[in-house]
Design a protein around this nucleic acid. Sequence first.
DNA 1: AACCAACACCATAAGCCCCACGGGC
DNA 2: CTTATGGTGTTGGTT
Length: 720
Amino acid sequence: MQISEIPLPEHLKQQYLAKGMQVLYPPQAECVERGMFEGRNLLVAIPTASGKTLIAEMAMHSHIARKGKCLYIVPLKALASEKYEEFSNKGVRVGIATGDFDRRDDMLGNNDIIVATSEKVDSLLRNNARWIAEITLLVIDEVHLIDSSHRGPVVEMVIAKMRYRNPAMQVIGLSATIGNPKVLAGWLDAELVTSTWRPVDLRQGVFCNDRIHFREGERRVKVVSKNFDDINLCLDTIAEGGQCLVFVSSRRNAEAFAKRAAGAIKSEDPGLKEPAKELERTAETEMGKTLAACVARGAAFHHAGLSRPERAVVEEGFRKGLIKCISSTPTLAAGLNLPARRVIIRDYLRFAAGEGMQPIPASEYHQMAGRAGRPRLDPYGEAVLIAKDEGQVEELFEYYIDAPAEEVHSKIAEPNALYTHVLSLIASGFAGTRNELLSFMDRSFYVHEHRQGRLMQRAVDTALKFLVDNDMILEVGEHLGSSEFGTLVSRLYIDPRSAAMIVSTLHKESDYSDLGLLHLICSTPDMPRLYVRNTDRAALDRMMDEHDGEIWLEMPGEEEEQEEYYRALKTAMLLSDWADEMPDARICERYSVGPGDVYGMVESVNWLLHASGELSRMFALTFHPRIREYETCMKNGIRRELLPLVKLRGIGRVRARRLFNNGITSPEAVLGAGIETVTKLIGRGIAEQVFAQLEKRVRATPLPEGEDNMAGQSTLSRFR
DNA sequence: AACCAACACCATAAGCCCCACGGGC
DNA sequence: CTTATGGTGTTGGTT
């Protein structure tokens, strides 16, 4: 099918033609034939990199041309940015809504296309964003993630809620190949488009005894390193002018492989100087230095412990072809699009707590294998598994390469999945009685799959009972309504179980303590926790002695629960160190984590601190000011004494500390010290900017102390 | 004497992602 | 309820 004959706005066609695209890929053409432009719902279940995004883009432009509005849901923030870039500059207004972008939702509604994560959409639905009602096309990218027990229920509920609100809306689901696409399509009332077609040929094989076994034949790999097959495979690709991506099971393995690869590649490309220097310059940790040393010689590793800038440098270096090899944990399998000539799946076993080493599911293998081959750049892509012995070759072929695609199933009836969704359905007015609740749930994929929902009914009732017992939902006869507490919890987007824990503890305690609060938050189901090693125990016990009385939660009697208690404590310690101005590098060393982990922890705890602050406003007003203060401390990584200084824009933890240590402890003192002194401490540019702020403030508000008593007032108005 | 390669042994540690929000001009 | 890795130490051989 020619692009020129498709009913699309002329300007878009021109852009496509200018990029050399003239003909649609077969699955794309099928979507058109199946009525995509006539508003038919679609489920497109085809391999990675076979043109799914373009399908969605064409449908969206067709809607916009008819004054429609489109919502494009993705599972990852990184993916949201990628799609945002891709859709921008094509003559339509594009907005992005993820946790770390754009909070002004009213502005968001002015766009033609809104790219958002599923959780963000769920949150917007709970907060009644006006523009939701205007959506005429809903695209769900990676819709097979409905099968994930952690995040699948969110996707499922968001789809159900959106279709309930906008019955006339067109729905397009984009999915990897799955085993039961008909069932999913049935749920979506969608035309099903499946295909095995790929724009770049993908060869899949198993490496053993210096040969890659393909179904079509064999390929000998030159032996360079005597001990390391993975290195030989890697060098083999590079010798042919390709790049490779190596998937391993742990961060440690990723780093170890990159070190070896760097030693074997020893690239002397002058282009590597700049990224390596950049990494070297910003490296504060051992890990960062290792990364810089690897990159200097053309190899890199990639995992969630890297900081954002480190990731960006690695990704860019690889895209430019300078870095020849990246060893990675699964971060790169699902995340952004970083294809390579050859993908090596070295570790297909992964540790699972309580179950030992488990083979990764075939779907994950396919996800990784799908990264092989860059469209238009590589003649073909290769995915290679590494076998331990000859006997395993056939096994790996069967288990992974020839495996049928896995089925997806609703995870909505699993324990704990429904607390938050039952609350939100009632709080946002989707249901007002138990019957309405159940009949709403009839729209779920779960009920479509199972034709009845006994298990799910039980889950709903368990959740409902919990919510009623904890006063988040009020029962008046038949009628169910959310209390002010329940509404707040739903809007804050935290797990009702977290909220209940926080509120009951705040109620009990008479004295406020930062550490008590921190440990409490770290014990909630919403907070990720660090692992505790045997060697950590002693330090944690000592810490508990030192801070006797400050920690609110009691040590549980059960052995297994103690483990979690210690994990929460260790996590709280890390965060407490951060807020106590311990430098990043020392934190990383002390807790053996990467800067990316610290960032992630701080981000999570900030969200929960914020939520705790809001909850305390309702239930423990005396704690409220202290919690709010601590929230700011945590956000900036500062002690309380720096609070007045970080109110100034351009002043963060480092500059505030420098000013403070030189006797300048408040904005007034900054003004008093004079611009010359301040310039010496924090540089001219920043000093000027700060003084401009201060002068403006002096003229505007004669009373800079007015904030503290405001807290009480805003509380009163809230309880009107 | 200094250095290196090869090997045995053992302690160690083991993926990732998403969510909220203000106040001053 | 497992397994691979890298550090450590040892040996034996080479320069």
